[in-house]
Design a protein around this nucleic acid. Structure first.
Lengths: 111, 111
DNA sequence: TAAGTATATAACTATATAGTTATATTGTCA
DNA sequence: TGACAATATAACTATATAGTTATATACTTA
């Protein structure tokens, strides 16, 4: 049974979808997700991996968590974050494919 | 042959992917895309359908076009826009599915 | 040509947020 | 307990952009 109705989508639903895209619309957050794709990681380790500051990374992690994309686990002094929603990688895959097509087309335009 | 390398992604590539998400991170632009999903449409018709102002819709259409998501065709006085990249609908589908899961989980949390 | 219609653009305002710096909080270990 | 380490948060600044209003541009038709 198909439950999605493509003919109409409430303003609220559109806002939620846009909100998900907004969370992914930040290169640093995408980079953090890529780090976590390998496996769970502490805030310090993530901070080093993405070459940003700790407060900035913490803030982005909170945004990702609020959106349900990552989850965390405390161990002693450290907090380990992990991917909580694998669909983000499928999204990135789709975008990469589309971008590749887009640039191929434009490249062809110039012979 | 698989061409995408998941281990590394350049800062530039991440910016492009984030940029695509940014374009989709606006409810009104998603609404415009939904209107165009049905078929090509003039700026005036789109403006009426999404209940916004003409200049605002024109601006959003330009953003969508720059990203390669829509294309246009002039006919007399009017300009007709159409979907140029169907992948956006697959993206929205994925997000909708993920959001549904997310809210189902949270709903279950409350019994 | 003049009036009307459709679209695009420019200038502006208001708002959201990424990044920084400083600090608070919490846990570890000597 | 005191010093240190890891994380979170608050306050701030700078920047980006959605929406509005006014206007420019281009086409149509009387």
């Amino acid at each position: 049974m198909k439950t999605t109705n493509h003919r109409e989508m409430s303003a609220e639903a559109l806002s939620l979808v846009a909100g998900r895209f907004k969370v992914l619309a930040e290169p640093l957050r995408l980079q953090i997700l890529q780090v976590l794709e390998v496996g769970e990681s502490s805030v310090t380790a993530i901070t080093n991996a993405v070459r940003s500051t700790q407060p900035n990374v913490s803030k982005h992690l909170k945004i990702l968590q609020d959106e349900g994309l990552v989850a965390k686990r405390s161990e002693g002094n450290s907090v380990f974050y992990r991917i909580a929603d694998e669909s983000v990688f499928a999204l990135c895959e789709l975008v990469c494919g589309s971008l590749k097509e887009k640039f191929t087309e434009r490249s062809v335009m110039f012979g």
